[in-house]
Write a protein that binds this DNA or RNA. Sequence first.
DNA 1: CAGGATCCGGTTAGATACTG
DNA 2: CAGTATCTAACCGGATCCTG
Lengths: 138, 138
Amino acid sequence: MKPGLRHETEDCRAVSDILGRVGDKWTVLVVGFLSSGPMRFSELRRSIGGISQKMLTTTLRGLERDGFVTRTVFPSIPPRVDYELTDLGHELRVPVNALGEWARLNMARVKQARERFDNAPSEQSTPVARTAARQATR
Amino acid sequence: MKPGLRHETEDCRAVSDILGRVGDKWTVLVVGFLSSGPMRFSELRRSIGGISQKMLTTTLRGLERDGFVTRTVFPSIPPRVDYELTDLGHELRVPVNALGEWARLNMARVKQARERFDNAPSEQSTPVARTAARQATR
DNA sequence: CAGGATCCGGTTAGATACTG
DNA sequence: CAGTATCTAACCGGATCCTG
């Protein structure tokens, strides 16, 4: 995302920026789990399940940097670190949840489209047939 | 995203799925340009500016596979291919635009948070101070 | 014109081992 | 417990060349 987009508008870069954070592999999961309250590192790790501790650290650092979560260290032994959504993080969940809800409602349509595409006779159809197929999806 | 998430809820996977498509490098730009009507390949390429033809092809194929755009080939010489958002694609723009709008409105806050984080005294603060900082951001 | 095929450097993510 | 450091395999995106 470094080069290439130099001449984009401010808006586009802001969107790409946020989407870059939100669209990465784990961020949404982490934010989702944090939405119900603060959690400590290993708690998150166990809840999410498939994440490596390196990726969890990286994801949380990114979220902290962007102001979406806070990181609170308790100087106890053993050490304990709590992560919690900031107000900004909670606000972010609104549009993200909207997108999530959309995804939930429309995943069947996407799945259907994928199956149709994957079983397609690999470009044996005429352009007219293609167009007809397009109409059918409307 | 293959292993690991086996035990996630359907919802979470749907969200990650959509976000994975939407959050990639070019998808949002492409969808944005297509929102005003059908465009042909080279038209898109020129409009977007920084994209290689390989990435544009890849992005468009992904969008086509998921049912967000249609691809119509005109058997002319020289060949001509039009891409157009499906209804599903147009509907997707609603939550994506909402997220984009949120990004536009809050990019300043994110930028501030980043600057604060990047100028931080790299963990010299006490946990209490950290917590105090957290309160300050509320 | 649209896009497939190939090569290649940079980034990324996971596994593993180690530390305060 | 909550990381950091390191290594490596996989992936990704760009550039280039080629075709119907």
